[in-house]
Design a protein around this nucleic acid. Structure first.
Length: 621
DNA sequence: CCCCCCCC
C-alpha cells in the first residue's frame, strides 16, 4: 500500500479544468453539510487526496449517500472516481460532484493518510480557464437551444442533476429538434433544466406513472386530482392536475407514451410525499398543453434511485424511498380494520432481501396486495415506498408507489443471480422478528423520554409508536383494579347491586359473578426524563408478575401481600413499546402514552443500539 | 388547491 496507488496531480488537473479519466484518490474525511435536511435531502462533502494535494470541495451525489450511511465509504478508503462533474461557482470556486465511484480499498485496510497532501489553493483561474463554462451536460443543452441566460445559471448551480446518469445529449441537439403535430418547432428542454423562474419551455418525456383520480375535502375546499411522472434522458418530474385539468387530461394520457408538455406551473416539490428525483414539480393549469409525440424516441422508462436494504435503518421514518430486493417470503392476503375509519383493509406482507444480507418487511395494501404474485422468489423493485416503523423498521406501499416485478435492469439480474446461486441458503439479519408483532425484537424507533418531549412525539391525532428502555419508578396501586363484566370481551365495569349480583350497563344484564380487570397508571424513567404511562390488563400482569385474578383475591384477603407485589415490581427495567397520542378531555388536550408491551431487556440488542449511538455521536457513521 | 395511505 503506497502513495503510488493514487493518481498524483489529479486534483490540480480537475480543478483547473483538465479532463482526468477515472482518477484514484483517497478519502481523508467526510462531513454532513450543515443545513442539509433529513435523509431525503442530506448531502455529504468529502475531503479527497491524490497524495500531493487535497481538495475539500467534493460533494457526494445523493444517490451515493448510502455508501456513507451504511459505512462502506470509510475514511482513508481508496476510491476510483468513475463519473464526476466539476462545476464553477462564480467567481472561481470549483466544486466536484461525484456521481459514480468504486471503492478499491476499504478504509480499515489502509494504514492511514497516504503521502503528505497539502490543500490545493488554486482555482479555476489557475488553469487560465476561469471564464470558460466547464463541460456540463445540462448547460450545454440549454445553450444549444438558445435558452435564456437565467436558465443556464440556475441549472448550472442547482443540485438537480444529482442521481442522473442517463443523459444522452443528442436528443436535444439543434439538428434533431422535434416537430409537434402542429408543425411548430418547440424549444425542448431537459427536465432538469426546468425551474420556477423560467416559463417558456417544452419538455419531451415519457409518462412513467399516472395515479388514479382522487377527491379531497377539507377546510380549504374540495376537488379532485391526479398526479403523474414524466421522465426524459435527464431526469424526471412529478406533475399534478386538479379539477378542470383532470377532465381535460386524465383520459388522454397513457402510461409509457411520450408527450410534449408545455406551460405548466413549476413549484418546489415537497420531498416527503414522493421519491421522484426533482427539486421541483409541476401543476397543470388552464394554459397547459400536452400532446403525444408519435416519433420513435428512445427515452427511459421508470428510473430508480435505490437505497440498499441495510441502509434503510438509518433513514428518517415516513420518507419515501426506492428499494429493490428478492422476495424471500410472501404471506397470504389478510384483513384488518382501520382504527380511524373502521374500514376493512386488505394487506399482504412480503419480505425482501438483498446481497447485504438484511431482510425488511414490506406491507402491500388493497388491490396491490391482492394482485401481487410473489411466487418463485421474483425480484421486486418499488419506486416510492414509505419507510415506516410498524413492527420495527419496515416498508409500506402508498397509492402512488410503483411496483415492478422482475424489472429488466442490471441490478435485478444481479440480485436474481445472487439469490439463485447463494442467497437462498443464507441467513438474513432482520429489521424485525419473523411474525414478531408485539415482540421486542426489531425495536428500531428508540427514543429517550427527553427526546419524546423535545420532538413532540405523539403531538398529532395519529399515534406515534416508539421503543424506550425504562425503569418503573412508581405505580398507582389505588384504583388499578375493577370488577368487570364476566362476559367474554365485554370488560365493562359492573355495579355491585349488594344482593350478590353485578350489573353490566353495556350488556344490560345482572350477573352472579365478575372478573378482575386492571388498568394501571405508572411512571417510567430513563436517564433523561420520566413519563407517565397507562398499562392495561396484559401489560400490568407482566409488570406485576401476577394475574389479575390472583391480585384481585389477594387485595381482598391480604392487603400486605398485595402491597408487597407492587414494591417488588418497582425499579425493574424493561424494553417498552409505547404508543403516544394526543387526546382531548373537556377541551384540554394532553399526551396519552399507552404501554403496548413490556419485555425483558435484550442486552445484546440494546448494546448494539448504544454502540451505534456512540458511533453517531463520534461522527463515525 | 393534494400530501390520506391504514396494522402494534
Amino acid at each position: 500500500m503506497s502513495v503510488s496507488m493514487l493518481t498524483a496531480g489529479a486534483i490540480r488537473d480537475i480543478v483547473t479544468g483538465k479532463t482526468v479519466e477515472q482518477p484514484v484518490l483517497q478519502v481523508l474525511g467526510h462531513k454532513k453539510i450543515a443545513g442539509s435536511g433529513g435523509s431525503a435531502t442530506e448531502r455529504f462533502r468529502l475531503l479527497l487526496s491524490d497524495g500531493v494535494n487535497s481538495q475539500s470541495s467534493a460533494m457526494l451525489g445523493t444517490q451515493l449517500n448510502y455508501l456513507v450511511l451504511n459505512g462502506e465509504l470509510e475514511d482513508n478508503s481508496i476510491v476510483r472516481l468513475d463519473k464526476f462533474i466539476c462545476n464553477t461557482i462564480p467567481p472561481d470556486r470549483r466544486v466536484m460532484i461525484l456521481l459514480e465511484l468504486s471503492i478499491i480499498k476499504r478504509g480499515s485496510e489502509v494504514p492511514g493518510k497516504l503521502g503528505n497532501p497539502v490543500p490545493f489553493k488554486g482555482t479555476a483561474a489557475a488553469g487560465g480557464d476561469a471564464n470558460r463554462n466547464p463541460p456540463q451536460q445540462t448547460n450545454e443543452h440549454a445553450a444549444s437551444n438558445g435558452a435564456p441566460e437565467q436558465a443556464q445559471q440556475s441549472t448550472g448551480q442547482t443540485n438537480s442533476f444529482y442521481g442522473k446518469n442517463n443523459v444522452t445529449p443528442k436528443a436535444y441537439g439543434n439538428n434533431n429538434l422535434p416537430q409537434t403535430p402542429g408543425g411548430s418547432t418547440p424549444k425542448v428542454y431537459p427536465i432538469t433544466a426546468l425551474t420556477p423562474y423560467q416559463n417558456r419551455w417544452t419538455i419531451r418525456a415519457r409518462l412513467t406513472n399516472k395515479s388514479n383520480i382522487r377527491t379531497w375535502s377539507n377546510s380549504r375546499g374540495e376537488g379532485k386530482l391526479f398526479s403523474m411522472t414524466f421522465t426524459d434522458e435527464s431526469g424526471e418530474i412529478r406533475a399534478t392536475a386538479f379539477k378542470a385539468e383532470v377532465d381535460k387530461f386524465y383520459d388522454i394520457l397513457e402510461v409509457n407514451k411520450v408527450y410534449y408538455v408545455t406551460k405548466a406551473t413549476l413549484k418546489t416539490a415537497n420531498k416527503q410525499y414522493s421519491s421522484v428525483d426533482n427539486d421541483y414539480e409541476m401543476t397543470l393549469n388552464r394554459d397547459s398543453q400536452i400532446e403525444e409525440c408519435t416519433e420513435d424516441v428512445d427515452l427511459p422508462t421508470v428510473t430508480f434511485n435505490f437505497t440498499p436494504i441495510n441502509a434503510l435503518g438509518n433513514m428518517a421514518p415516513n420518507t419515501t424511498v426506492d428499494v429493490i430486493g428478492v422476495v424471500k417470503s410472501v404471506a397470504d392476503v389478510s384483513t384488518i380494520i382501520a382504527k380511524a375509519t373502521q374500514k376493512e383493509l386488505k394487506k399482504r406482507e412480503v419480505s425482501l432481501v438483498d446481497q447485504n444480507q438484511v431482510m425488511i418487511n414490506l406491507t402491500l395494501w388493497g388491490e396491490t396486495a391482492e394482485g401481487f404474485d410473489g411466487s418463485n422468489h421474483p425480484v421486486l423493485a418499488i419506486k416510492g415506498a414509505r419507510l415506516s416503523d410498524f413492527g420495527g423498521r419496515s416498508l409500506s406501499t402508498l397509492s402512488s408507489s410503483q411496483l415492478i416485478v422482475n424489472p429488466d435492469i442490471e441490478e435485478a439480474h444481479r440480485l436474481k443471480g445472487w439469490y439463485d446461486r447463494d442467497g437462498h441458503n443464507l441467513d438474513f439479519q432482520q429489521y424485525r422478528n419473523e411474525g414478531g408483532q408485539g415482540g421486542s425484537g426489531g425495536a428500531t424507533n428508540w427514543k429517550s423520554f427527553a427526546a419524546v418531549k423535545q420532538e413532540n412525539i405523539g403531538a398529532t391525532e395519529k399515534p406515534d409508536y416508539y421503543s424506550a428502555k425504562g425503569t418503573v419508578i412508581f405505580m398507582r396501586k389505588e384504583n388499578c383494579m375493577y370488577q368487570a363484566c364476566p362476559k367474554m370481551d365485554c370488560n365493562k365495569k359492573v355495579v355491585d347491586q349488594s344482593n350478590g349480583l353485578y350489573r353490566c350497563e353495556k350488556c344490560q344484564l345482572e350477573y352472579p359473578n365478575y372478573k378482575w380487570r386492571m388498568i394501571l397508571s405508572a411512571n417510567l424513567a430513563d436517564y433523561s426524563d420520566n413519563q407517565w404511562v397507562t398499562c392495561f390488563q396484559e401489560t400490568t400482569e407482566t409488570l406485576l408478575g401476577k394475574s389479575a385474578d390472583e391480585l384481585g383475591s389477594l387485595r381482598e384477603s391480604d392487603e400486605a401481600s398485595f402491597d408487597q407485589i407492587f414494591q417488588e415490581a418497582t425499579f425493574k427495567s424493561y424494553t417498552f413499546k409505547l404508543r403516544a397520542k394526543q387526546e382531548t378531555y373537556n377541551d384540554e388536550s394532553r399526551l396519552k402514552t399507552i404501554v403496548v408491551n413490556a419485555t425483558p431487556i435484550d442486552y445484546r440488542e440494546y448494546n448494539r443500539k448504544l454502540i451505534q449511538d456512540i458511533e453517531k455521536m463520534a461522527g463515525m457513521i
